[in-house]
Every structure is written in structure tokens, then in C-alpha cells.
Nucleic acid binder design. Structure first.
Lengths: 225, 225
DNA sequence: TAGATTGTTAATCGATTAACAATC
DNA sequence: TAGATTGTTAATCGATTAACAATC
């Protein structure tokens, strides 16, 4: 027993977080059961895909009935590792860092902001949310003395690599990277990139594309021009 | 001539934005040419994949030489649709919205914030970045009278669907959605979701996974330890 | 039992990669 | 020409989907 391990494909992990969000919503609204078809429709997916994704959690549904919302929620959190709380530090207190320090969604999912750092002496000591900004030099001693799991990196691109190196040396094992520059992952450090400008570019492309499709609905299957 | 169209796979579009970011960096540093192998290594990809991705732009490289940075940059922007500027409105001026209003990266990529809206009368009239916050009721008249392409949605989940409907009625064709709720795309509205808490969950899973792998390096290919 | 829905297999589809001819 | 690198084909790999037996 206790043997679900086996790496889950990234695409599935990504959807598991979406299922989780829906399930938490359902739990709040008092819904006890859910079918794969319902989740699929809600998220714009195929119901086979939902069942296959959920089967990565083990046998967690009931044939003829569906999935119990509460159990499914717990199973996803267990697999993701978010059934416990994670200590997170925030590095770089510019506009974005400041906003992230106050963002409710992190805490709700068990991510605890335990410290905030900036290299600007002007900012050190200032309050941001419930935290007092520390000097970047205090980062390593802090991480060594306190349990820290992840870092949210919101510094300028020019500083990102050196700060990331510092984080790795200190023993942080994951970085959520908002800086518009590639920070390579390695064995002891996982980096999850988030570039907001790139997201807008992706959106722009989708918009252009969908307009083109609606204008000339040719080269759809079977065109014989 | 002029016939690159043909929808580009989402995975490729996603990487095109990454290539673009690297290329812009190279352009700033005065580099004139780049090889697929270099881009691949920089981004942790396969060089075949880079060439295949770039071939979606047409024949844009020079055999034996590589790609000219400036031309490649322009070609990617043309395909993405970011060779022109886009008018963007920001809806929901909480912590995140406020930070996004000051974010430099958008403007640098040609996304112009032209207005900011909030439903809270207390906030209306306040200055955010260079913009004065307007009432949400002014959204429709504004969008009808001014050219607006995209909206950045940073309202609470509870308001997101109704605001999205309003945006669609007004004629906005794309939404970058930061609210933790699914807004369905449709023919005339494309939604690009960004959920920061989910990104942290994905990171958490990767971290757990990589720790497991380093602890018990079994089921790797061909280990003979 | 009859009806419903999962879990899983097999088939399809699409994306990645290796390899190499084309060509600078 | 010799050396290098693209563009593209064919092979591989992985992810999605349809279909259905298992079972609640």
C-alpha cells in the first residue's frame, strides 16, 4: 500500500490544479459529489481526459456514482503536496512584489509568506503586508535558520540570476520566477516561470487567430480550392 | 506572397514568445546572428524543435549561417500580432491591479494601458499609474467610443463572470484573466487564464517530485547501481 | 435488476526528435 | 571547395479520445 508515486505528466498536473480549484468551490457551496462529465464541461475538457487524469490519484471514484468532492480534493492535494503548508519567501519588493505580498490566494492554498527581502536599503525595514522588509544580505542566514521551501522572485531581470544563485546556495528548492529571464532548473532547484508580458502576447496571438478564422473560414478540413 | 497564416500550435506560440524575449535581449546587447542550437541550449530545448518552431514563420534563416536576430525578432512579432500596439484596459484595481498598472513589461511589448476601472466608488477618481480610475459603469461607453483590444481582469472571482460578460458586450475580444475562476472562451472572446496560486501549486509538485527522484533513483532507464 | 459512471484499453492524434539533403 | 547550419522528412514518443467492460 501507499504507492501512488510515479511521475504525473506536467499537462496532467496542470489540470489537477484546475480540478482542485473547482472542487474547492463546490465544497464551499456544499456539493458532495461530482461526475467527470461535469468537470469536463466546466473546464472545457473531454470527460475521458478528466477520468484519466484523476486515475493518476489511484482509484478515487465510485462507478455508477461519481467522485466524492471532499475525498477528491484531499487526494489531489496529497498528490500535489499541498496537503501541508509551505513556507515561502518573497524576494524583490517592487510593485509586483508588494502586490503579491498581499495576495490572498497564496495563503488560502497553504503557502505562507514568512519573509520579504529587497536589496534597496531605502526599503529595508518598511512594512509590506504583515512582514517587515529585510536586506537581501540577510537572506542566506534567514533561510539557513528557518524552514523555507519556496521563493517568489520578483526582482528586475538584471538581478534575477544572481539572486537565484543565492537562493539555491541557501537551500531553497523552488522558485516562482516573475523576472523576464530564463533561470535554468537543475537537480536541486526547480524553477516555474511566470512572465506576464508573454501571457499577453499569447493572448494577442489567439485573438488575431480567432479573428482570422471568423473572417475567412477556409482552410478548414476538406478545402478543395 | 503573404501567406504564412495556418494556425500555429499553442505549444509553439508559447515558445515563440520565449524566443522573442531572448532575441530582444540579444538585440539590446548588439548580437546580430543566432543559431538554433544556441537558442535551444539557452531555453533548455532541442535544436530540432527550435528550427521546426521557427519554420512556422516561413523561411527565415540562412543555411550555414543561422538567423539574423533583427529579422527573426520582426518575424515573430509579425506572426504574434505584436508588431503593432494594442490598447488594453485594466479592470479591478485591487493590489494586483494596482501593481499591473505600473508594470513596465506590458508597455515595452506594445501593450498600452488606456484606462482603468473599478466598481468601488471609493476608488473612482483615484490615480493609478498615469490613469484615473473610472467607474465600472463607464466601461461600455468607453470601449464603444475608443479602440480597445484587450482587457486585464483583476477583480475578485465573485465578480469575474459578470464583468467578463460586460467586456464581451462592449466588444473586447481578449481577456487576460487573473481571477481564480474559469471564464469560458467563445467565438468572439478569447480568455487567457493566469492563476498565480495554481502556478505555486505546480511548482510545489515539481519540487516534491524532484526530491523523490533524488531520494530513490529507481525506475530510471537502465540504472545498474 | 436497470441505469449510470468509473477505470482502462486500444486507437487516434499531435508533438518532439533524429537524421540528412539542401544550401549558404 | 569544405564547413556549417537550416529546413524538412520520417521515426518516435507521448497525450488525447472513443469505446466498453467492470461495478456501484
Amino acid at each position: 500500500m501507499a504507492k501512488p508515486r510515479a511521475a504525473i505528466p506536467a499537462a496532467t498536473v496542470s489540470r489537477l490544479t484546475l480540478y482542485l480549484r473547482e472542487l474547492q468551490q463546490m465544497e464551499r457551496s456544499g456539493t458532495s459529489h461530482v461526475r467527470s462529465g461535469w468537470l469536463a464541461e466546466r473546464l472545457g475538457l473531454n470527460d475521458s481526459q478528466v477520468r484519466r487524469d484523476l486515475s493518476c490519484l489511484g482509484q478515487v471514484g465510485q462507478r455508477g456514482v461519481g467522485y466524492r468532492v471532499h475525498e477528491l480534493t484531499a487526494a489531489i492535494q496529497r498528490v500535489l503536496g499541498t496537503d501541508r503548508s509551505w513556507n515561502v519567501i518573497l524576494v524583490g519588493i517592487g510593485n509586483l512584489g508588494r502586490a503579491l505580498s498581499k495576495y490572498r490566494g497564496f495563503d488560502q492554498q497553504g503557502f505562507r509568506l514568512v519573509a520579504a527581502f529587497d536589496s534597496d536599503p531605502e526599503k529595508v525595514g518598511d512594512q509590506v503586508g504583515t512582514l517587515s522588509i529585510k536586506d537581501l544580505n540577510e537572506l542566506e542566514p534567514f533561510v539557513v535558520s528557518q524552514p523555507v521551501d519556496l521563493a517568489i522572485l520578483a526582482v528586475p531581470a538584471s538581478e534575477a540570476l544572481s539572486v537565484a544563485a543565492k537562493l539555491q546556495r541557501a537551500g531553497v528548492s523552488g522558485i516562482l520566477n516573475f523576472a523576464p529571464i530564463v533561470i535554468p532548473s537543475n537537480e536541486s532547484l526547480t524553477v516555474q516561470p511566470v512572465d506576464l508580458a508573454l501571457e499577453l502576447q499569447r493572448l494577442a496571438y489567439s485573438v488575431v487567430q480567432s479573428k482570422q478564422e471568423s473572417h475567412d473560414p477556409k482552410d478548414l478540413p476538406d478545402e478543395d480550392g
